[in-house]
Design a protein around this nucleic acid. Structure first.
Length: 293
DNA sequence: CACTGAGCCTGCTAGC
DNA sequence: TGCTAGCAGGCTCAGT
């Protein structure tokens, strides 16, 4: 048993969350809308399941991209036939536009899972080292059901402090796993959950229903501000994340706790940050600013 | 209902 | 230097 040995430090990797996915959508919109898909190639069939790869290819070939938008962490590509192509990057997925001939931002070819050639000769390529990412082709009804399964968009007008407070009142679940639950609020992942809780000075294990109206207001403000700032900075790149054009995001400099090296101290009070596991996910807090009670 | 753990995957790294 | 065990994590599903 080596339980007494200090846990090894693994450099954190970012996973695309709302700001990163939003950035991918924005960068792909201009080059992609109006283009048609001349060919499609699936090199890892599970990426497009439950459809068989050949069915996916048949259905998508010849389609034209009508629009690109984001819902939760999904890139939503509306196709001219009415079908909807959703892309979830999960951990290491990258959806990259690459100009004819050029390799998709020098990604290793062995990580290519799905590729589309466009009618102008350019390519749209889905790379994913870990193979957790998914592309799904849905009917409008299926898409509606998926979209309805998500909670409110945190940057939409409907997500007010009062709405958040009301939703928090209805459950005793721990705050952090709740924020990560896409049915509670859409698009938040490990980075922005930790950052928002830190800024609002709330312990990640606090029961949701114990949050006061005032604290809920703080949390709401910090969620909105944190996500907005990250979008302004084109997302957070620690290692893998890239925009649709292969660019890194610069939001890393704005992070307070996520990915902090061991020994890092709180910017507010100088206390050594603490790493814990909440809901099976690495979590960094300031033990002084974020008290259970 | 709230929570836990397994499974999906492979790149990376600590530790030998 | 070279090898390997184990960690990283969004999401789904099964079990308590």
């Amino acid at each position: 048993m080596s339980a007494l040995r200090p846990p090894p430090h693994h450099e954190s990797t970012e996973m695309p969350e709302l700001p990163e996915v939003e950035t991918v959508c924005r960068t792909l919109r201009t080059p992609l809308v109006g283009r048609s898909l001349r060919t499609a190639l699936v090199t890892w069939p599970r990426t497009v399941e439950p459809l068989p790869a050949d069915t996916f290819v048949d259905r998508v070939t010849g389609e034209t991209v009508a629009s690109i938008s984001r819902r939760a962490k999904l890139i939503v590509t509306q196709l001219s036939s009415g079908a909807i192509l959703t892309t979830h990057l999960r951990m290491t997925g990258k959806l990259l536009y690459s100009v004819a001939g050029g390799n998709g931002a020098s990604e290793p070819e062995r990580h290519l899972r799905v590729a589309f050639q466009l009618d102008n000769g350019d390519d749209l390529e889905f790379y994913d080292a870990r193979k957790f990412g998914r592309m799904r082709l849905l009917s409008p009804d299926e898409w509606q059901a998926v979209s309805d399964s998500f909670g409110p968009e945190p940057l939409s007008p409907e997500f007010t402090a009062e709405v958040l407070y009301d939703r928090l009142q209805r459950t005793t679940r721990q705050l952090k796993p709740l924020l990560l639950d896409q049915a509670f609020v859409a698009g938040i992942g490990n980075i922005y959950a930790d950052e928002s809780l830190y800024l609002a000075r709330i312990h990640p294990l606090k029961p949701a229903s114990s949050i006061s109206r005032r604290k809920a207001g703080d949390l709401h403000g910090h969620i909105v501000a944190t996500l907005s700032r990250a979008i302004d900075n084109a997302g957070t790149t620690l290692r893998d994340y890239r925009s649709g054009l292969g660019e890194i995001g610069t939001n890393r400099a704005s992070l307070n706790v996520y990915g902090a090296a061991p020994g890092t101290v709180c910017k507010r009070c100088g206390t050594r940050l603490k790493r814990l596991v909440v809901g099976q996910r690495g979590t960094t807090i300031c033990p002084r600013c974020q008290r259970i009670r």
